[in-house]
Amino acid sequence: MRDEARPANGSPAIAAVPKIRLRGLTKRFGDKLVLDGIDLDVMARTSMVVIGGSGSGKSVLLKCILGLIEPDAGSIEIDGQDVLKLDREAREAVRNRIGMLFQNGALFDSLPVWENVAFGLLARHKASRAEARARAIEVLAQVGLAASVGDLWPAELSGGMQKRVALARAIAAQPDILFFDEPTTGLDPIMGAVIDGLIVDCVKRLGSTAVAITHDMASARRIGDRAAMIHKGRIIWEGPATALMDSGNPVVDQFTHGRREGPIQMELRR
């Protein structure tokens, strides 16, 4: 069912080393096996969308790649380098190249919007406060927010604006890998489409490699070049994002069409 050989975006398959390469990634929390040997390749400058039900391990997968959760087994290669074997400093250097948009924004509510956006720049001492502020306002403009928003507090913003600010924060340091954790959850369909459009623009402009996890099919098709489905801790299907709705895999079809009947049985307590 996997069609690994097919090149992404029609580019030749000899583009060789994937930007992100996961092999046998396993993670267990107590008795619960969350990731059961994940194999996944994401080629450079492409967008991979990972779909899957709630609790299927999508977020854990991203957190493992980011180094926020230590996997029990397997390898995570970025540009051909196994990050799990690197020392702490080298891993931090790898992490500095990754931008992350968290599901609920995760904006720092004790800091004004501009400081949120410029946080990474200030933390790396790459800019003075004045320079960081100017850069923050520039990035806010890229996500369609006025300079005056920079002086507001995160709690004063609507959900859609918070997502935009969080996106601005993720792209401010111009990372070459971007992760999006359910970017449209909690937004109305129009705002969801707007955020998806911004994500696609940003990824294209930066030339980044993107991995998004979602269970919003419209969003998955808008953002992704490729798609993969995670189910019971394994990747059960992978293919072009355009094939999501008619994948030919009964599990994927049940999920993408939201059917109650099918191979996926909801775990309900009786």
Partner: peptide
């Protein structure tokens, strides 16, 4: 309460991803 809220709203993970 402040640090706990930061933990459950992923702000602590966000700090890590922002080189802090």
């Amino acid at each position: 309460a402040e640090i706990g809220t930061m933990r459950v709203t992923d702000q602590i993970d966000a700090l890590t991803t922002l080189s802090t």
